[in-house]
Amino acid sequence: MTTETALSYPGPTPTATGEPPIVRGLLIALALAFLTLFLFVPLAFVFYEGLKKGFGVYLAAIAEPDALDAIKLTLLTAAIAVPLNLIFGVAAAWSIAKFSFRGKNLLITLIDLPFSVSPVIAGLVYVLIFGLQGWFGPGLREHDLKIIFAVPGIVLATTFVTFPFVARELIPLMQAQGTEQEEAATVLGAGGWQTFWRITLPNVKWGLLYGVILCNARAMGEFGAVSVVSGHIRGATNTLPLQVEILYNEYQFAAAFAVASLLALLALVTLALKFAVERRAHAQQLFPEIHR
């Protein structure tokens, strides 16, 4: 019997959940085919279309003033939205994981809201609040403040859409770690800030970095919510994704794909960073003594 088993399961020691090679092969092939069709081909196509008319045209499309403005605005938006969500995420995760209070579950659900609401709706909500016909519209106009169809609106919409990333990453991590180390630090005489900087933050730094990377990628790539509040004013309220759309609608395919390739590049860098951070966090094995 043993020899028969060994014959039908070549390779490493067969386990109870091991499948015959043909099944395994099929599953792997299926996954790869799916990835190729929906991921690698489109990604390669972006770069191919962008570079089709030569490297000169590619560079010119990116160096074009409107495109440069879009890059600047995208960077500015991310530079505001990501730190805001970093602070919010740490504060929310800290309070959820380390204290018990009424309405905690509600808070967790609310943090997830941007994931469950269509970004277009998120954008619309801000138009309804801050737009000319909105709640604060008249008041804002009196003081000559523009939020909708201006940079503040874009930052607001982006911040809304990206706020779950850091918090979502940290909450389970902090919950798993519990409060024992913080208690130990307190009894040893550390104050609140000292405990946070010396114990809590170092313990979650990889999870935090991971959340920030994902948050940044989304902040730069967000289309729907930003599209609603931006007003598509060239050189003023266009982010990279909006710029791509405009160029594409104007049949400037090479330029559209050139700009799009920047976003694709961002995705690749994000992926590489994510991979590096995961490996680092894994290799360190920071908390093998967690029991609960």
Partner: peptide
Amino acid sequence: QVGFVFQHYALFGH
């Protein structure tokens, strides 16, 4: 100024 030894030690892993 108390010393506390926790059940699961609570050493600082980093």
